[in-house]
Computed example of a mutant assay.
Amino acid sequence: MNLIIASNADSASINLRDRLLEMSSWRKCGEYDGNDMWEINENQGDYCKKGTRLISIDNIHIKAERIDEDYGKKENVKINNIIFLSRHKAASGKPSLTVHPIGNWGKAEYGGEEGKITPASPKIMTSLLREIKENQLEGFDVCFEATHHGPLLTTPTIFLEIGSTENEWEDKLPARALIKSLLEVKYISGKNVVGIGGGHYTPRFTEAALTHKVNFGHMVANYGVPFLNNEVIKNAIEFSCAEGVYFHKKAMKKSTYREIKENLEKENIVVFEQADYSKIMQNSYN
């Protein structure tokens, strides 16, 4: 079963949860963490299949360490994938709709554990990005974010976020756009890759995902590159079910790019170019 998690400590998360209950048919099926637990009544897109559950927690979600194990044991269920509903905060204040994997390449300042990552969901996350782009609101950016923050889980997980200020977090319009995307998402197959290089908002990886059949798992922004070595990259590949690596090389120091690329090739790890992906022939993102 798939699981969706909201946090009562996050106004955007509450907004998204309420829109999800409003825009699709659910039934109460018990309690978790003292809050109502819900199960969807019918198939809605490729993620919200009948039986998908929605829970709320009182703690902030980035601190919900190993909640998958706790929930699975208490409910005697196997969780296949998790989506957290969340706010996104940025100093720029730019309105945005984002998705990203979770984990820490270095220190764990916002949940999780130092140097550890949670399995990613490349097909789900990338397909969801495309669907959000279809439902993009005027004035809102749509993009991936690089892998960051907790919690640390063993189940493939992504965060679905409204940014970047309280005005957007509590606005029903962007919440409805994200929930519409979640309820209508259709998966597109493609090569799974790990992205390395560029800024936190991964413009190159976002552009590639919107135009080509490539699904991104973990993504390492330039600030995470100093923590990389072959073993860390191999782990990211494994946790992304990836076939290789894709660089935003123009956004990296040439010497750093060359060093990482040469080390990966010595380990027979495939380095992809955009020409290796087939194009998505029909879309309306513009």
Rank of each mutant, 00 (worst) to 15 (best):
P203M: 01
M125L: 04
N167K: 15
D171K: 00
F205V: 13
G112A: 11
L152S: 06
F159P: 01
T147E: 15
N167C: 14
T118Y: 05
S164H: 13
R204T: 14
W105V: 14
G190Q: 13
T126W: 13
G115Y: 03
I179G: 00
L153V: 14
N135P: 08
K172W: 15
W169S: 11
K107D: 13
R176V: 03
E207K: 09
S121F: 14
A146E: 06
K213D: 15
G103K: 03
I132A: 12
E170N: 15
G139V: 11
E184L: 04
I132H: 13
Y110P: 03
T165R: 14
L160T: 07
T154F: 09
K116Q: 09
L178Y: 03
E207V: 00
G111Q: 13
N192V: 13
V194G: 15
K107V: 06
G163R: 05
N135E: 12
R176A: 07
E207Y: 11
T126H: 11
F144Q: 02
S189G: 15
H149W: 03
I179F: 00
E109I: 07
T155P: 05
G197S: 12
S164N: 05
G150Y: 08
A120V: 11
I188Y: 12
M125T: 14
K116H: 08
F205H: 06
H148C: 00
G197E: 06
L137T: 04
E166G: 10
W105A: 13
L129Q: 13
T147K: 12
G139Q: 10
E166D: 11
V99F: 11
G198Y: 04
D171F: 02
P203E: 03
Y187P: 13
K123W: 07
N192R: 12
L210Q: 08
H149Y: 02
E113S: 07
H148M: 00
A208Q: 12
L128S: 10
N135C: 06
W105K: 14
N192E: 15
G150P: 07
T154G: 10
E114V: 01
M125F: 08
E207A: 02
I102Q: 09
T154Y: 06
P203K: 04
E170Q: 14
I117G: 05
K116G: 01
I162N: 07
E166V: 09
F205Y: 01
H149P: 07
P122M: 06
D171S: 00
L153D: 13
T118W: 03
A208S: 11
F159D: 00
A146F: 07
V194A: 09
E145W: 08
L173T: 08
R204V: 14
L152F: 03
G195V: 06
S164M: 08
L178N: 05
N104L: 09
K133N: 12
R130M: 01
P203T: 09
I124H: 15
L210N: 06
F140S: 10
T98C: 11
G139L: 10
E114L: 04
P101K: 04
H200D: 01
Q136W: 11
H200E: 08
A177L: 04
L152C: 01
E207W: 05
P119C: 05
T206R: 03
T118S: 03
C143N: 14
C143K: 11
L160N: 04
L210Y: 10
